[in-house]
Measured scan of single mutants.
Amino acid sequence: QIFVKTLMGKTITLEVELSDTIDNVKAKIQDKEGIPPDQQRLIFAGKQLEDGRTLSDYNIQKESTLHLVL
């Protein structure tokens, strides 16, 4: 699992595989929060994550926290 922190300070827990693409992750956030993926920007280690890449491409591990910017 990974964590996604919103600017409102809310933390969302997502069940993911490290082979999941950023697209997949955004879809899971949409399922939980109702935010359309095209409005989501995910940040990790100061970098904006690109849709076609996977979590492992960015060296994101289990229990990592991503930041969601709208």
Rank of each mutant, 00 (worst) to 15 (best):
Q1H: 04
Q1R: 06
Q1G: 03
I2H: 00
I2K: 00
I2W: 01
I2D: 00
F3R: 05
V4Y: 08
V4A: 02
V4T: 02
K5P: 00
K5S: 13
T6C: 05
T6M: 04
L7W: 15
L7R: 15
L7Y: 15
G9I: 01
G9D: 13
G9Y: 04
K10F: 07
T11N: 14
T11Y: 06
T11I: 12
I12P: 00
T13Q: 07
T13L: 12
T13A: 05
T13H: 13
T13K: 12
L14W: 00
E15Y: 03
E15D: 10
V16N: 03
V16W: 08
E17N: 07
E17K: 04
E17D: 08
E17C: 09
L18R: 03
L18Y: 05
S19C: 01
D20Y: 10
T21G: 06
T21L: 03
T21A: 03
T21H: 08
D23T: 07
D23I: 06
V25G: 00
V25H: 00
V25K: 00
V25Q: 01
A27V: 09
A27D: 11
K28P: 00
K28R: 10
K28G: 10
K28Q: 06
I29V: 06
I29S: 01
I29K: 00
Q30M: 05
Q30I: 11
Q30Y: 03
D31S: 05
D31N: 04
D31H: 08
D31E: 09
K32C: 12
K32P: 10
E33P: 01
E33T: 02
G34K: 12
G34R: 06
I35K: 06
I35E: 12
I35V: 06
I35L: 08
I35P: 07
P36H: 04
D38A: 07
D38Y: 02
Q39A: 05
Q39N: 02
Q40N: 05
Q40W: 15
Q40G: 11
Q40H: 07
Q40F: 03
R41V: 14
R41P: 02
R41D: 15
R41C: 10
R41I: 13
L42R: 00
L42W: 11
L42V: 10
L42Q: 00
I43A: 14
I43Y: 15
F44Q: 12
A45G: 08
A45P: 03
A45V: 10
A45S: 12
G46P: 02
G46C: 05
G46K: 01
G46F: 06
K47R: 10
Q48E: 14
Q48D: 15
L49F: 02
L49H: 00
E50G: 11
E50W: 12
D51M: 02
D51R: 08
D51C: 07
G52M: 06
G52S: 09
G52F: 03
R53M: 02
R53C: 03
R53T: 09
R53P: 12
R53N: 07
T54R: 07
T54V: 06
L55P: 01
L55Q: 00
S56H: 02
S56K: 14
D57H: 13
D57T: 12
D57F: 13
D57Q: 08
D57K: 02
Y58K: 01
N59Y: 06
N59C: 10
I60P: 13
Q61E: 12
Q61D: 14
Q61Y: 13
Q61K: 09
Q61P: 12
Q61A: 11
K62S: 12
K62V: 10
K62E: 14
K62M: 02
E63P: 09
S64I: 05
S64A: 12
L66G: 01
L66F: 11
L66E: 14
V69W: 02
V69P: 15
